[in-house]
Design a binder for these strands. Structure first.
Length: 278
DNA sequence: CTGTGGTCCTGTATGC
DNA sequence: TGCATACAGGACCACA
């Protein structure tokens, strides 16, 4: 499940493989991953053909691929989206959705099993696509102001995990890194934000930065073939997880058995001793 | 502003 | 064996 570290691994791979490449042909094999194009698949294909990629960018979980003109291709990997670079004639992986023939003889392929991901042409979006203007800066951006974001969190009348997952306050965090960060900061997912201390809120955000930086160093978190980099390789952070997926195992800090609870229609795994309410 | 629940998807795992 | 159901979950939207 691609979150910020996984999206950044993909962005770096794309930066290496497609920057400066011209698109010679586009083939959308399924309508679903092509989002909001007024002229459908064909308009999408025609609109991209002949463009030249500049350096890929990212904010939170969103990636965008600016062209050398003022436009961009906005990408969200969703649950299972991935890019692969292959030879044009190589057998297609299952769930291959869009093909881009590039001018160096390689083929960029967008593969997405669950199709929560999507691609969208953004007019004038090279600097920052309008489609993601509502997404807050992520913790890796230079303009990310940790103290300011902490204050914003504390001003909300909500609960901490809900806010961490809300991409308009701080972006890039999904279920995995939310659980990991809260475990590190010894905080319960349902802790009311208005009752968090400044110290604790900042510690949570630092935990977010730390865990994501460590995950990035290890190429991201892969559980199965749904997340791999552009060369098809998995990341190794799954072996370093302390909370996500650790239900029934002893807490790495205190040995208490980790529990999983339902929250916001998804699961939260936590240590019932380290992460108590109140 | 906040919270809830539905929707989009398909592969895998589990239940009977 | 086979069929049905649950589950995984990021973003967005309608609605209370």
């Amino acid at each position: 499940m691609p979150e910020l570290p996984e999206a950044e691994v993909v962005r770096r791979g794309l930066a290496e493989r497609i920057t400066g490449r011209r698109i010679e042909r586009v083939a959308a094999l399924h309508p679903r991953p092509v989002r909001y194009h007024p002229n459908g698949q064909r308009g999408f294909e025609d609109g991209l053909t002949g463009r030249t990629f500049a350096e890929p960018k990212r904010r939170g979980k969103y990636i965008w691929l600016p062209f050398c003109d003022d436009d961009a291709l906005v990408v969200h990997l969703g649950m299972s989206g991935q890019f692969r670079i292959d030879a044009p004639g190589a057998p297609l992986l299952a769930n291959t959705r869009v093909l881009f023939d590039l001018d160096d003889g390689t083929q960029l392929r967008f593969v997405d099993q669950r199709m929560f991901g999507g691609l969208q042409l953004s007019a004038g979006g090279a600097r920052l696509p309008s489609q993601i203007r509502h997404i807050a800066p992520d913790p890796f951006e230079t303009q990310f102001d940790l103290n300011q974001v902490a204050a914003k969190i504390m001003a909300k009348r909500s609960t901490i995990k809900r806010v961490l997952l809300d991409q308009t306050t701080v972006s890039g965090i999904g279920n995995i890194y939310a659980d990991e960060s809260l475990w590190r900061a010894r905080t319960h997912y349902n802790h009311p934000t208005a009752e968090l201390s400044t110290r604790r809120t900042r510690a949570i955000l630092r935990a977010v930065q730390d865990v994501m930086a460590e995950a990035l160093e290890q190429g991201g978190t892969s559980f199965d073939a749904l997340y791999v980099n552009v060369n098809g390789e998995s990341g190794y952070f799954a072996r370093s997880l302390n909370a996500y997926g650790q239900e029934g195992k002893p807490c790495a800090r205190c040995g208490t058995i980790m529990v999983r609870e339902s929250f916001m229609n998804r699961s939260s795994t936590l240590c019932p001793r380290c992460q108590r309410l109140g």
